[in-house]
C-alpha cells in the first residue's frame, strides 16, 4: 500500500506509532502540548487520515488505530495544494487571477544576469 501524508498528518501518525492505539481525545491532548493545536484542529487531521486509510477508528470509545507501519508512509508532495491556496495571501490570489504563474528557467537566468550586471 502506498499512502502519502502531509506533515501535519504524519505528526498525528507519530503519536499513534509511539503510544499504540489510543483515543482521539488523548491524541489531541498530546498534540496540544507539542504543536499548540486545539482539539478541533487535531480532530480535523484525524478525519483526513481516516479518509486516506491511514487510521481506523473503532468502538468502544472511538479508539484510533494506525493501519500502516511507519516504514510504508511517504511524505506527500505539495505542488497541487500550493496552487490552490496561493501561497496563503489574499493579494496573491489576485495576482493569480491576473495570471501569476511560475517563472521559466529562461526568466530565472535573466534575473541572475541582472544581479550579476549590477553588482
Amino acid at each position: 500500500m502506498d499512502i502519502k501524508l502531509f506533515d501535519s498528518e504524519l505528526k498525528v501518525m507519530n503519536v499513534l506509532w509511539q503510544e499504540g492505539d489510543t483515543t482521539a481525545k488523548n491524541i489531541a491532548g498530546i498534540l496540544k502540548e507539542e504543536t499548540g493545536w486545539n482539539v478541533n484542529t487535531t480532530y480535523t487531521i484525524i478525519k483526513r487520515c481516516i479518509k486516506k486509510g491511514a487510521i481506523e477508528r473503532s468502538e468502544p470509545n472511538f479508539i484510533c488505530h494506525a493501519l500502516i507501519p511507519k516504514e510504508e508512509v511517504q511524505q506527500a508532495e505539495t505542488d497541487e495544494l500550493i496552487n490552490k491556496i496561493y501561497d496563503g495571501s489574499a493579494d496573491k490570489l489576485f495576482a493569480a487571477l491576473l495570471g501569476r504563474k511560475k517563472l521559466s528557467a529562461e526568466q530565472i537566468n535573466r534575473l541572475k544576469q541582472i544581479v550579476e550586471n549590477m553588482e
Binding site: 495576482a95 504563474k101 511560475k102 517563472l103
Partner: peptide, 18 residues
C-alpha cells in the same frame, strides 16, 4: 531568485505581470 526557482520547478510558463 533561488526561492522563485524552487517554486517554479521546470514549468515553461511565462507571464509578463509577474
Amino acid at each position: 531568485i533561488g526561492m522563485e526557482e524552487e517554486k517554479s520547478g521546470l514549468t515553461p510558463l511565462c507571464n509578463n505581470f509577474s
